[in-house]
Nucleic acid binder design. Sequence first.
DNA 1: GGAGGCTAGATTATCGATAAAGTGATGTGG
DNA 2: CCACATCACTTTATCGATAATCTAGCCTCC
Lengths: 223, 223
Amino acid sequence: MQTRDDIPEQEIEHDDLSIARALEEDIIFGRLAPGARLTEDTLLARFHVTRHFARQAIVQLETMGIVVRERNKGATVRSLTSRQVQEIYDVRELLQRQAALWIPLPAPDALIAELMALHEEHGRHIEAGYLRGVHEANDRFHLTLFGACGNSHLVQSIELYMRLSLPVRANSMSSKESLQISHEHHRLMIEMLKGRDNWVLAQLCVDHLQPSKKRYLAYVSEN
Amino acid sequence: MQTRDDIPEQEIEHDDLSIARALEEDIIFGRLAPGARLTEDTLLARFHVTRHFARQAIVQLETMGIVVRERNKGATVRSLTSRQVQEIYDVRELLQRQAALWIPLPAPDALIAELMALHEEHGRHIEAGYLRGVHEANDRFHLTLFGACGNSHLVQSIELYMRLSLPVRANSMSSKESLQISHEHHRLMIEMLKGRDNWVLAQLCVDHLQPSKKRYLAYVSEN
DNA sequence: GGAGGCTAGATTATCGATAAAGTGATGTGG
DNA sequence: CCACATCACTTTATCGATAATCTAGCCTCC
């Protein structure tokens, strides 16, 4: 709630991490389209920081894989071919399926409670049309869920691939309907956590990824 | 062959990438043990570069996950608990198994030929006791093999986890015997590529990881 | 004796300036 | 009119200096 859209960027103290986060949001909300240039001077003016931090932020985004840099030519928002999207999602499905399979079932009550809280928050933001909140609650829901698999490295890799698919997911953020479907999936996942069938849970986690992937692939095939 | 051990570092032109590579080698050959400090000034003196590049190199190593940095305190070579090693290898096995399953069999002759060349080189370096060559040929062998799965993102993740397990593998580099076992595994893999059974190949790729993992876990449990 | 604070030394973080590289427009000779 | 050299402009890369931060040893005061 601290940094809502209506607060001008200039009044906030920025470091390289917060700049990277702000730009990450610009990408997921479509304000920065794939292929858009990202010059140091632009960031410098927009965030009122020294060149050093603008630069670091771009480096950050590069290592997160959502921006590409060419030597002496600057950075552009990474644009994904449908082939790459397919590859990314294949790996994402692999990782998330395995994480789901490794979660000890039935899950402890504390975890269920935590997820239900995030789930409730997610739903609230959807109703309010507060996309930033939706996105954040959504990501935290998944990271908490998969965190239960007990393998922090796996979770880290899942996080990486969630970031890589940011531009893909941008599409689905725009429709309330698809957000509600996603929300319903989450509810089902929580139900599954109370049971003992990892395979059903895993399948659900994989299915959950399909809508935004298909939507994006259909979108790019039009061009 | 360009940069063998006998050439002093000072005479080579370094950029941040070559420094990172040099340090990576120091780690795998045990010259830099886990926990060892890595100050900017040290690198600065050793490689005769400006602070800028020494710094970049450390940042590089950090994003590669083989070094940890604390704010205002500098970097140390990452030391892995047995828990972490277990986690890393679980993910590594997952990724490599899936890559093996995705390789279209039987593999094209060109790939077989390429792998056999790398395999031959690997063996030659083992006989010569040239560890740096062994390591490089080994990594290229695996990346070429898994590259055949057709999913470049998966290969990238595999590469990441190979890096993460660098200190683990350091142990196995010291014994000629284990290197020869590894070499024999590679031969079998090439054989499997000529066949049609992905599952056998996948199992072999997973089994291939066990010796160095077990060796390391046994080693740390002693302390 | 020991808890807290102070200082010196070591180390990283930050900065603004300058160098280097790339880009596109403009003009000239063929 | 086109190929190509030149130049002005934009943008990133590199640098050395300085500021900020942390650590450990020492000292004082209770």
